[in-house]
Design a binder for these strands. Structure first.
Length: 303
RNA sequence: GGUACCAUAGCUCAGUUGGUAGAGCAACGGACUGAAAAUCCGUGUGUCCCUGGUUCAAUUCCAGGUGGUACCA
């Protein structure tokens, strides 16, 4: 008895392009479930600013990973990759098609290619390096990396503090060069991955972004941010929509400026997402309204 | 209708004592292996309103036109 092909259908696209709506229709058509590939919708305290599907939408189709974390939890792309590996194994028992929906590029990479097994970050070392960067600048760190891992030194952007600190912390905690952990291989999986990308004209996208921000403000984004303000140092709260309100609460900008910044940063974020997604040669691009087109492409791939 | 002022990047405006121009805000391009909605790198995108005149050379000076603003009728 021949089994039907199992496909993980990834639906991605820039923020506000219309992923939720179109993925609900597709999931209903295939009577399947949705796994979120959105690094911020996982935090249950951040609902309005991350535009999670509303309760009625969550009721229509079973969603996974939304609200599974607290802002106080540590999480990363590698953990996401592990989570999706085990969850998909479980869900493919019931479904031949699974939807993965979201625009977090690095998480997508982790699913599509796998992510190398690198020792977990040692937070003490990381904090020490961050402190050193603040007090002495980037220079000593890049110099140290050059001796510990010349390969990484050549490969990594030496002007980017986060990259330099990351490489160094792995070298220091493992005793081996950071670059030695990179296998540059693609992980084999027992299911196919079909990449769908949503795209609309830039101008329309920006209109949708503005509209969405208006809705967030109506829904009480400011109040949500106010509650989270005491925790503004957390990584999760570096998110757009929150960090700008924190600047306002801290008296650094006016409320009007903060909202203006939210609009601008969201547009820039959307551009970066588009830029990231353009790299996937296997991406099939669709207008979000073309649900039928996506459904027939998925059906074709099942054969 | 008259007078004055203005017209330069997507927007607000600088500027060139005549040698084809630059700020802010926007916008755009790119990188990415455990912080990724993070972080980092890069780009001026222009018929200087139009037509003619003076000049080796006009976005700049002159004339006319067009559009705008203010005031007077």
């Amino acid at each position: 008895m021949k089994e039907k092909k199992q496909i993980l259908v990834s639906i991605s696209g820039p923020t506000a392009v219309g992923k939720t709506n179109c993925s609900l229709s597709i999931a209903e058509h295939f009577k399947t479930e949705i796994i979120s590939c959105d690094s911020r919708q996982m935090y249950r305290e951040m609902k309005i600013g991350t535009a999670v599907p509303d309760p009625e939408e969550l009721d229509r189709v079973k969603h996974h990973f939304i609200g599974k974390l607290s802002i106080h939890d540590y999480y990363n792309a590698s953990m996401f990759e592990q989570d999706i590996s085990s969850l998909s194994a479980e869900l493919f028992q019931k479904h031949d098609i699974l939807l993965m929906v979201g625009g977090s590029g690095m998480y997508l990479d982790a699913v599509l290619y796998g992510i190398d097994d690198i020792p977990d970050p040692d937070m003490k070392i990381r904090e020490r390096l961050i402190l050193q960067h603040e007090t002495e600048g980037l220079e000593p760190l890049t110099a140290q990396l050059k001796t510990l891992d010349p390969v990484a030194y050549d490969r990594i952007d030496m002007k980017n503090p986060k990259r330099v600190i990351r490489a160094l912390e792995v070298c220091l905690s493992s005793g081996k060069p950071f670059s030695s952990f990179h296998t540059r291989s693609i992980k084999q999986r027992d299911f196919d991955i079909l990449m769908l990308g949503l795209d609309i004209p830039r101008e329309t996208l920006y209109e949708r972004i503005d509209k969405r921000i208006d809705i967030m403000l109506e829904q009480g984004l400011e109040a949500e941010a106010r509650i989270l303000h005491p925790h503004q140092g957390l990584i999760a709260l570096k998110s757009i929509g929150y960090r700008e309100f924190f600047q306002y609460f801290d008296g650094k900008v006016s409320r009007e400026e903060a909202i203006h910044l939210i609009r601008k940063n969201t547009r820039q974020y959307a551009r970066k997402q588009i830029n990231w997604l353009k790299r996937y040669k296997s991406m099939h691009w669709f207008h979000p309204d073309d649900v039928d087109g996506m459904i027939s492409l998925i059906a074709q791939n099942q054969k």
